[in-house]
Simulated scan of single mutants.
Amino acid sequence: MKALLSSKPVLWFLFLFNLAVAAVAPFAVDGGQGLLTSAGMAVVAAGAGVALVQGRGRRTQG
């Protein structure tokens, strides 16, 4: 499961999808629930973005 979640296509999907949801959530859901949803999705998108940037400097061996 770790290999799947750390693959580049999955990280790009997590980054872009969660970033889009984070941008739309405050407008789609009213009140605090929209803000908390946006914040949670932004945290996931940031984590995927950091993993993409860290993986850029690493080279695969094999």
Results as ranks from 00 to 15, higher is better:
43 V>C: 10
32 G>Y: 06
48 A>C: 11
60 T>G: 12
25 A>L: 13
28 A>F: 08
29 V>S: 02
11 L>P: 04
52 L>C: 04
47 G>S: 08
29 V>A: 08
35 L>C: 01
21 V>F: 11
61 Q>R: 13
34 G>F: 02
58 R>C: 00
47 G>Y: 02
20 A>E: 01
60 T>E: 10
21 V>A: 13
17 F>C: 09
15 F>L: 15
37 T>P: 00
17 F>G: 03
26 P>F: 03
43 V>Y: 11
17 F>N: 05
8 K>Y: 01
28 A>N: 06
56 R>S: 08
48 A>Q: 09
23 A>Y: 04
40 G>Y: 06
36 L>F: 12
48 A>G: 07
23 A>G: 12
6 S>G: 00
13 F>K: 11
26 P>H: 09
13 F>W: 15
6 S>D: 07
46 A>L: 15
25 A>M: 13
54 Q>C: 08
23 A>L: 15
40 G>M: 14
60 T>I: 01
15 F>K: 14
11 L>D: 02
42 A>P: 01
45 A>Q: 10
44 V>K: 04
9 P>Q: 07
9 P>A: 06
62 G>V: 05
7 S>G: 11
17 F>R: 03
38 S>I: 08
62 G>Y: 04
12 W>N: 13
13 F>G: 11
15 F>V: 03
57 G>R: 13
62 G>P: 09
31 G>L: 08
